[in-house]
Amino acid sequence: MFSYCSDPSTLSGLTWLSCYLTTPKHAGFYWSFLTVLTLLAVTAPTALAFGFGGAAAARSRIAPLRWFGKSYIAVVRGVPDIAFFLFFVIALDQAFEWLRHQWKCPDWSEPIRQGNDFVVCAAAKLPLGTSEQWVHEVYGFFTAVLTFAIVFGAFSANVLYGAMRAVPKGQIETAEAYGMTRRQTFWRVLVPQMWVYALPGLSNLWMVLIKATPLLFLLGVEDIVYWARELGGSKTPRFTDYPHGDWRLWYFLALLVFYLCFTKLSEVVLERIMKKLTRGQATLGGTV
């Protein structure tokens, strides 16, 4: 990166460090922070949408829909999230491939599960065997986002379900007295008012979501944990210009500090939002 970096073996001290931290491999490390932020930016609204759907289903009048919503919330919450991550990554992939298989190769006669193998026709493979590396990476990231959204959707469904029930009954009754239909009551009265009840739960969920992002590593995405392990491991002079011992401790310390700053920042911002939202509300927070 810098001009004086051309011969690293002559460098020492801070100049060495400045060169070491700007190698192309480290650029990959820095980009992976963006991967994490992208994941958060994409997952949060998707999970919220899933959660809204789940909460609406859980309080639906149609029994099967209600059962679906309630069991979605209960099952995902009762089981460790990491089990779900490991499960959905393979399950979603196989589900997509199976659907494509049904669609693209309808006259395939052999069974798909042959012993310990999952065999679909070549045209149904996802991503196609011929596609480029970045397609594989994007697909991996996509399944990771979907997995996160399903799991955190259940958590947020739980929060929103609670928030919908926290809206004062009188409000709903008033809406009904004005002759609003169920749908109108839901969209015009319930939904606008539930957010302030949902916010404490949702901000907690946002914190949990931030703290769940390192699990991307387990889903096979090249995230910050992957790079920290990769770059931190001891390097001999044979393979790199910047040999060093086992520095994984320091790399993970850096990750810890990154997460601490991130959660602290989120806490401050969420506190502000809460203050803004409770202004004028008839709660203890709103009277101040």
Partner: peptide
Amino acid sequence: RGSPLFIQFFL
């Protein structure tokens, strides 16, 4: 509380 348990384990 501010950092992921996963990172804490590694560290």
